[in-house]
Design a protein around this nucleic acid. Structure first.
Lengths: 360, 360
DNA sequence: TTGTAGGCGTTATCAA
DNA sequence: TTGATAACGCCTACAA
């Protein structure tokens, strides 16, 4: 039985040649009508269509790609598809890619330059038409080769000033600045930051925003209050816990990315601390579930889906050569979503320097 | 300037022919050493290696694919990359795919058979080596053609009995049965179910588990208590709200998939109802944040990542022809994660028929 | 308007 | 061991 099944010969693949033969025309004609370009008489056009239909012809994209040197595939390499931010970004890129006839090959770098390197090479060898990349900082040289060789690359989430490629980013500094300022305006004074990993540009920018907000409020930054949650719930929980065990513990947390939110909140809950009375919280990234926490979480929302769509649009027009040679970075504005994780009133209310409001 | 940049001629691509020429050997030899198979003298082997290195040669995978009729690409078509379940599934599939030299092309069907059809056709034309599919029920005919033509297909999350393809699924019926039974054992009697969409096999199985649990407990099913949240937070909120406005309102919710959890909980919170005192909740799918809700959410956890890895493994060995012609479906066991969204004690404790415990 | 033929870059067959 | 050479399936001059 098994053997029989295995031996059943597979239907041979139908090629353009078959269609042409069946329609009594040359492959050139068949190619022209199926790709509809060039002159073909109505009569033959019909014949070819019918033959193709009858035989169930469908074009072999691999062969076409080889000939035309264009695969209509886009590569997208991100840190980790598993995180909300990238998931939405990928969906955005896929939606506009697909609308334009492109398929997406998704690669996870896990923030590891080695993996990124491998992915980049493979995408190159696969001759994708372009690449959307959330870059580590480890492959500048290779990326320069790429752009120089005419491989369109657009960066997302992080800029790479040393590279001649456009980037679609969110104003991380501003988002963090607004978030931390919000905490300060509500009377919190010892604001800790869960910082993620060192060396990731977007996170460094958020740290900068944190620093600037403190500075503008005339508050000295305490180095003890900076911790690396490593983008991981368990480690964040530990680090946040350490913070809370400090003799002079923080009265607020600025969490600089979603991966650390659950861990940080867990640490707070474990110690029976109340939000917002005992500790205030603002988190970067605005997951759907932020609103059902008690209290609901105040967040900085990023337009991740839009980053994806815009990146794809940019990339595609670059592929089509429509850029006119100009490259223009795009920075999207994050949005502070005020919910309930900061107390209403500043207890010691005369807080900020006169006239201080949010930067526009 | 701009023009200058555009005119800078791109470096010509290095082909095998170039390497061969530079090493003074034939392309055949070059191909053999670079693909390392076949006999080549050590001397020429060196020469080729050096030449390849010097020129920065890398193989054109498109050409190779055309020749070998194998793209080392896998297609994966799921409902929506944006949902946690599929995100983890894709990551699992990608991890093992990549380990075996495959790339993943990700497609979102949004549960729409039309989109699914298009994706399937495109993947076919692209000559992917195999497909992982979370199927709607609308493309049986086409899928039969696929499997008959020798395109390896493995199904995930949902079985398709009418199709000759192996499936990797979770025991949805059992998961729901355990979840609902948990509610019943804790004294809840009017258990509503948020059902998602009709016609999705996995959700129908969960509904079956719900039904069976009620039946075994000797509780009549009230059709009023079944609502379609349509896998969407806003609609779920409305539907759950309707349920809570019923004269004879439910005292518990079984939420049959993550997309409806936030909406349902929102509806409960909006009415000032307390969990677990006023209403008990068990939700299918166990997101990371379930544990930081107050009270923490009792859930049914699915091994989504494993579904992905196993699917990829199965698919790959099928591609390698290692199946021996046998196909064996795999069903993974979901796990009830008891936290705090059901009350501790049954208020009216003599509840279940004697000897009733969970099915093994 | 049509058909012939060459080539995209590899792999693989088959003589030498 | 090696090297021509013929595919793989498609597109596209170019010639008719």
């Amino acid at each position: 039985m098994v053997l029989l099944a295995a031996m059943r010969s597979l239907p041979r693949k139908i090629t353009l040649r078959d269609v042409a033969k069946s329609a009594n025309v040359s492959v050139a004609v068949a190619s022209r009508v199926l790709g509809n370009h060039g002159y073909v008489s109505e009569e033959k056009r019909q014949k070819v269509r019918i033959a193709a239909e009858k035989l169930g012809y469908s074009p072999n994209i691999v062969a076409r790609s080889l000939k035309t040197a264009s695969t209509s595939c886009l590569g997208i390499v991100i840190a980790d598809i598993t995180t909300n931010f990238f998931t939405l970004l990928v969906r955005g890129a896929d939606d506009v890619g697909r609308q334009n006839g492109y398929h997406l090959i998704v690669c996870n770098s896990d923030e590891d330059p080695e993996k990124e390197k491998v992915h980049l090479e493979e995408l190159w060898n696969r001759k994708v038409d372009g690449i959307i990349l959330c870059p580590t900082e480890g492959n500048l040289h290779r990326l320069r080769m790429f752009t120089r060789s005419g491989m369109p690359v657009v960066l997302v989430d992080r800029r790479l000033p040393q590279l001649d490629a456009v980037s679609i980013t969110v104003d991380n500094r501003l988002g963090a600045f607004e978030g931390v300022t919000h905490l300060l305006e509500h009377g919190y004074r010892r604001v800790a930051i869960m910082k993620g990993l060192p060396g990731i540009a977007s996170l460094e920018e958020r740290f900068l925003g944190y620093t600037q907000a403190l500075k503008r409020a005339g508050i000295a930054r305490d180095p003890q209050l900076v911790r690396y949650g490593e983008l991981n719930a368990e480690i964040s929980r530990t680090r946040a816990g350490e913070l809370l065990e400090l003799r002079n513990r923080p009265d607020a947390f600025f969490i600089s990315c979603e991966a650390m939110t659950v861990g940080t909140l867990t640490a707070i809950q474990e110690r029976g601390l109340r939000i917002p009375q005992d500790v205030g919280v603002v988190a970067f990234d605005d997951p759907l579930w932020a609103s059902i926490l008690r209290p609901p979480l105040t967040t900085v929302r990023q337009p991740s889906y839009s980053v994806g769509t815009i990146a794809a649009q940019t990339l595609i027009s670059q592929i089509a050569g429509k850029t006119g040679g100009l490259k223009e970075d795009i920075t999207l504005r994050p949005e502070l979503v005020v919910r309930g994780s900061c107390r209403e009133q500043s207890p010691s209310s005369a807080a900020l320097p006169h006239g201080a409001t949010l930067l526009r």
